[in-house]
Every structure is written in structure tokens, then in C-alpha cells.
Amino acid sequence: MKMDRRNFIRMCGLGLLGLGATKADKIFADVTKSKYLRTASLQGKRWAMVIDSRKCNDCDDCVAACHKVHNVPDINKKEQEVKWIWKEGFHGTFPDLGHQYMTEKLEKRLFPILCNHCDNPACVRVCPTKATFKREDGVIMMDYHRCIGCRYCMAGCPYGARSFNFQDPRPYIKNMNNEYPTRTKGVVEKCNFCAELLVKGELPLCVQACKKGAITFGDLNDPASPVRKILENEATIQRKPSLGTYPSVYYIV
């Protein structure tokens, strides 16, 4: 090839690209040969939750416990709220199920709702960076370090379970829990099934906080687990089952 000015510039460009590529492998390399352990095994598990709405009444203990520990901000603009678990009426929770002659009790009942940790999650399918992903134990996790804030997962989630940090959340956290991180402006967040507790063998905060024992948590793959016992003995439903997402949160109505 004749080395004229154009070719020289082209070669420089290629050379720079090559230099960049040599650095790329470092991104994924481990620095240590150390081992990493789990306090409690998550192998072969699939976590699930059964919420007995008959036992649930006007208290907000589950919401308060979760939001306090996880540093969920209290944003005054309702449309840009951040929430991990909250309560909705029957028609909001099960929009495809209700009818106009339901009992007054059911019309008034509030259902705690949270991320369904679906077995076939649309949010995971659409995320362009794997910032949201499904762990082997079925927990749908968010990697806030990686989220680019495109909100594709919010369009994908049919349950409205995801919140976007439209602004810096820190000024809206009243009592900071110093043992758990906050999130930052511009990322999506949601319930993590208390993954930080599951790995230590503890139950999620909402389950612990409920004085009525309305929320049961356990391993769906274990026939002896409390969730399987309830599912076998009670009439239970999931939210929007026709969408093929296979939610891991069940409700007794």
C-alpha cells in the first residue's frame, strides 16, 4: 500500500484501536486466587413467597421494615416514587380478575406487592447490560454498578415493580442505615428478596416484620418447605399468570 497522508491516518486509527483491545482482557480477570464462600447454601434452591391476604390488615410493618433497612428514599413526587414493597387494592393487584359485584371486604382489602422474582422474567430478557439478572436460586438481582438507566426493564415488567431514581435519592432518606448502600441518581431499583439475608440463612425483612405471620417464605424445590405446604393446602393465585412470567410470589385471597 502506498503510504500517503490518508493511509497514514487510517493506520494510526487502527493502531489506537489495537492498543485499546490489549487492555480489554483485564476487565474480567481476577486479581486474587482467594476463595469465596457462602454462609448458607443457595444451591438447588428456588425461593418463593406466599402472602395470605386474609391475615394482612391495615398495618405497614413490612413496608416500613424493608424501606428503612434498604435505604429506600421517601420521594414526595408521587409519580417518581421509589418503592420495593407497597400495598395495592384488589383491582390494581389483579387487574384481570376482579368484577363489579365483589364483596365489600375484598374491594377494600390491600395486598402487599413486590417484585415477583419471576421464573421467566421479562426484565432480565430485555436488560442490555445484564444489570438485572436471575441468580441460580431464582432471585432477580440488580447490579446497580452496571445499570445504564435505560428503563427498558420498566417497560418489560408487567407488574410495575421497578422504580427509577429520577433524582439523587440521598436527600430523601430520612434515617440512613449505615450498613446498607443507597442507590444513585439514574439507576433502576427494586426488591431483592433480601439477598443479603438469604446468603446468611436468614428470612427476608418483610417476612420477619409481619406480626400476623401473613408472609411465608421458603424453597419451592423442597417439598417439605413451608411454602410448598401452603400451596398444597390452600387456593393460591399469582399476579397476571397468563403472561407466562411464572411469578414466585403467590397470594391467598
Binding site: T129, R146, C147, I148, G149, C150, T184, G186, V187
Partner: peptide
């Protein structure tokens, strides 16, 4: 994007 600086992710 909420975090445009991460777009190359």
C-alpha cells in the same frame, strides 16, 4: 439514559 456515561456497557 439515567447514566449516560455508562452507555458503552
Amino acid at each position: 439514559l439515567g447514566r449516560p456515561e455508562r452507555v458503552l456497557n
